[in-house]
């Protein structure tokens, strides 16, 4: 094999393969699905720190608000979040010294995303259930 020369590196024949190599090398995470979550529950309900398929948003969503778009893992998952409902015992605003209690909830329905997709998932009041799925720590 002759030594590589400058002109050979830039030859047109090599450019598609170079692009293929760049695509293989750097692009897998670029085709991950993009996901945003919208609070469509009720005006009295706020959602906090939603998570979905490897994504975690540090946000408090009032009714109608949405998270930013984030790249998540392809697959199926429920949307997990903390919920605060005003006017219920968890909203302890009558006692000035107590903090409101955010309970863990998740959607009852599974949401599916795949490579290259962009999805905006709405969380609605009729699709909620308490979330007891938080796995314990693994390992050491």
């Amino acid at each position: 094999m002759p030594p590589l020369r400058q002109g050979k590196v830039a030859s047109p024949r090599a450019l598609p393969l170079l692009a293929l190599g760049l695509g293989l090398g750097g692009g897998c995470d670029l085709v991950y699905p993009e996901v945003a979550v919208v609070n469509r529950t009720a005006a009295s309900i706020q959602l906090r720190n939603p998570t979905f398929s490897g994504c975690a948003w540090a946000a408090v969503l009032a009714y109608g608000e949405a998270t930013t778009l984030e790249r998540c893992l392809p697959g199926a998952d429920r949307i997990h979040f903390e919920k605060l409902e005003f006017g219920t015992p968890s909203d302890a605003r009558s006692d000035a010294t107590a903090l409101p209690v955010w309970f863990r909830y998740q959607t009852r329905s599974l949401r599916q995303v795949d490579y290259g997709e962009q999805q905006v998932f709405e969380v609605t009041a009729d699709d909620l259930e308490q979330d007891f799925t938080l796995p314990g720590p693994y390992g050491h």
Binding site: M1, S11, L18, G25
Partner: peptide, 16 residues
């Protein structure tokens, strides 16, 4: 074959 080698070389050296 040579072009493929050049491509892989380019990626490897270009990224690092």
């Amino acid at each position: 074959m040579r072009a493929l080698v050049v491509a892989i070389l380019g990626v490897a050296l270009g990224g690092w």
